[in-house]
């Protein structure tokens, strides 16, 4: 199966669930910013969760099917369409050869993930197909996609994927009348982000902590896959102390020397020297990935134990989904 990129959009890269095993050498995790959507796009075509997907940022991308394809998409940055007809998300889509798929603006979010049966083919670098642009490795030749790129899938080994192709094969775009209920996995208010206290939380003064949990913050324009700058009340330490650099992770909220917040995302450095006021619960980091510059968010305090429980519940639900999808075919 093959597609050709006609328009790449703002930033389109190949990502999987990240590169965990080389953090000690300062190689960032990378991977999909919204891992939940990437996993759902994969599940929807019968792939394992960690197969490579295309991460589109906002809309404006266009691609052409050079062969018949079985794909799926999830995420809130765009709505896929063919000849003006919207394609539904979170379910397998059979698109015959010669169709142009356009990504239309979706005001709900920022990033959209496109999976294909077998996963998008790319060289595995250090255990992952994720693109890391700063060092120019992973994904499609270590770079973001450009017009004219032709992408293929890896061989299809999943029996479920093969069954889906058989059932949906048609001369016109075809899909079933059901979808993966992704919204059931998310909290109802997507602008409230749950966090637990970071290591240096208690170094901040009372007013700062009160403001941290009661005021809103705005995503600044200079936000990217490395991290989001947040505009809002300044966080001040009771006593200024120099910290030595130590490990940080996606979801870590650092406070700069001037008191501004930086929320670290997928491509963040592995170590940092700024005090860490909080850590975003892993289950809500996927919500952050859908925020755009100008969007507001609020933080809600939870315990580390609750964050772990939420994580485990999410994983359990995702496992159930895999079984549920198989039973449909």
């Amino acid at each position: 199966m093959q597609i050709k990129i006609l328009k790449p959009g703002i930033l389109s890269t190949i990502q999987d669930l990240g590169r965990m095993d080389f953090l000690s050498q300062a190689v960032p995790t990378s991977g999909a910013m919204d891992t939940l959507s990437a996993r759902i796009a994969n599940k929807a075509v019968g792939n394992p969760d960690d197969f490579a997907v295309i991460e589109f940022t906002y809309a404006a991308a266009e691609l052409e099917t050079l062969t018949d394809v079985l794909v799926a998409y999830a995420g809130d940055g765009a709505i896929l369409s063919i000849n003006g007809n919207n394609l539904p998300s979170e379910r397998p889509l059979f698109i015959p050869k010669g169709n142009t798929i356009k990504l239309k603006n979706n005001p709900d979010g920022a990033r959209t993930y496109l999976s294909i049966v077998g996963g998008w083919a790319a060289k595995t670098v250090m255990g992952s197909k994720s693109t890391y642009l700063t060092a120019g490795f992973g994904g499609h030749y270590g770079r973001s996609l450009i017009a004219g790129d032709v992408l293929s899938n890896d061989p299809i080994t999943s029996q479920l994927s093969k069954t889906m192709i058989k059932k949906l094969k048609s001369d016109t775009p075809k899909f079933l009348n059901w979808s993966i209920p992704k919204t059931l996995l998310l909290s109802s208010n997507r602008k409230v982000i749950r966090v637990f206290p970071g290591r240096e939380f208690s170094k901040f003064n009372g007013l700062s902590i009160t403001n941290f949990f009661s005021s809103t913050f705005k995503i600044a324009v200079n936000s990217n896959r490395m991290g989001f700058h947040l505009e809002g009340n300044l966080m001040l330490q009771r006593k200024k102390e120099e910290l030595l650099s130590t490990a940080v992770a996606p979801g870590t909220i650092q406070v700069t020397g001037s008191g501004n917040l930086i929320l670290l995302m997928a491509d963040c450095q592995t170590t940092g020297g700024y005090p860490r006021i909080a850590q975003v619960a892993a289950v809500d980091l996927t919500l952050c990935a859908q925020l755009k510059p100008g969007d507001s968010l609020q933080f809600e305090d939870i315990s580390t134990e609750d964050a772990e429980i939420l994580y485990l519940e999410r994983e359990k639900e995702l496992n159930k989904l895999t079984t549920a999808i198989s039973s449909r075919f």
Binding site: M20, D21, F22, L23, S24, L244, S245, T246, A247, T270, T271, E308, Y311, L312, E315
Partner: peptide
């Protein structure tokens, strides 16, 4: 166990929560 990150005076241990539990 997944990996570790050593820094000046810290050692961070990364793991898969499901496997550990």
């Amino acid at each position: 166990y997944r990996t570790t990150v050593q820094a000046y005076c810290t050692l961070t241990v990364f793991y898969d929560p499901i496997l550990v539990l």
